[in-house]
Amino acid sequence: MSGIHKRHWPGDKDRRALALHCMMGNAAYWGPIAARLERRVDLSAFDMPGHGRSGPWTDQPGGPDFHTAVTRIAASFIDRPLDLIGHSLGATVALRIAVAAPDAVRSLTLIEPVLFAAAPDPEQAARDAALADLLAQGRAEDAARGFIDIWGAQPFDTLPRPAQQTMARQIGLVAQTEDTLTRDQAGILRDGGLESIDAPVMIIAGERSPTVIHRIADALAARLADVGRASVPDAGHMLPLTHPDQTAGLIALNLDRI
């Protein structure tokens, strides 16, 4: 794994925050969110391996899986309690950190967490099986198309050709996270784990997101001690990108709860 590209939006030096992006995204989309937070937090982010300006991901024999590697990178930013914000895959990393080290988190904002193990869903299982089948056939672009048409901000075929090619290269990472997201290999849902988080939590979903997202939010909220819920009207999975005003407003609301 090569170097990790870090991003920083200055703000209140006494209130540090870390934002974690989604699969096939990059940390740049936190810029509009940071601007709307108006320097109330000192916000850092990074491009995950194989994303944005970071180096490629290389799966090393005996090394950490992708989700674990990203979690370790995120944890390296934490030297005192901070506000943790995550979207999609990034939200599952944020939740994994909060379960492992509740004292490290001042507030936790989970945007569309894709921890499918929390709410097993036949439609999602079918999507996972279709993705695996396309990858086994070497049809990476078709696999990326199927993924983005469900989880992206716009249909795959409307994206610029370079973006399509990048996503086709990245799509294998989606399959590599299945053990954690679908089978909870990391033990995020272990007994007493979610219950140990005493920081204020906000779970945000897009109104038009797949049903499984709302079921995951229900399952997580039922086990959290201090949790708020929000659904953004007319938004889908990529609401930090498509609805930055509403997303930043809800993040700010959670920041104000501590």
Rank of each mutant, 00 (worst) to 15 (best):
M1G: 09
M1K: 00
G3V: 11
G3W: 10
K6W: 14
K6H: 15
H8R: 13
W9V: 09
W9A: 04
P10Q: 05
R16M: 07
L18M: 02
A19L: 04
N26M: 10
A27Q: 05
Y29F: 15
W30V: 02
A34T: 08
A34G: 04
A35L: 09
A35T: 12
E38D: 15
V41I: 15
F46N: 10
M48F: 15
H51I: 12
R53L: 15
T58C: 06
G63I: 02
V70N: 06
R72P: 00
A75P: 01
D79C: 02
P81N: 08
P81G: 05
L82I: 11
H87C: 05
T92P: 12
A100W: 08
A101P: 00
P102G: 03
D103K: 11
T109S: 14
I111R: 02
E112A: 08
A117K: 12
A118Y: 04
A119E: 05
A126Q: 13
A129V: 12
D133A: 15
L134E: 10
L134H: 04
G138P: 06
A140Y: 02
E141C: 00
R145K: 14
R145C: 13
G146C: 09
F147T: 04
I150E: 11
I150S: 07
Q154D: 09
R161D: 14
P162K: 05
P162L: 05
Q164F: 09
T166A: 14
Q170P: 08
I171A: 03
T177R: 15
E178R: 10
E178F: 10
T180Y: 12
T180L: 00
D184N: 11
D191M: 03
D191G: 00
G192T: 09
L194G: 12
L194D: 15
P200C: 06
V201W: 05
P210S: 07
I213T: 07
H214Q: 11
R215P: 01
I216A: 03
A217M: 14
R223D: 07
L224S: 06
A225N: 15
V227G: 05
S231H: 07
A235W: 02
A235L: 04
G236L: 01
G236I: 00
L239D: 04
P240L: 03
H243G: 05
G249H: 00
L250E: 10
A252T: 03
L255S: 04
L255H: 03
R257D: 03
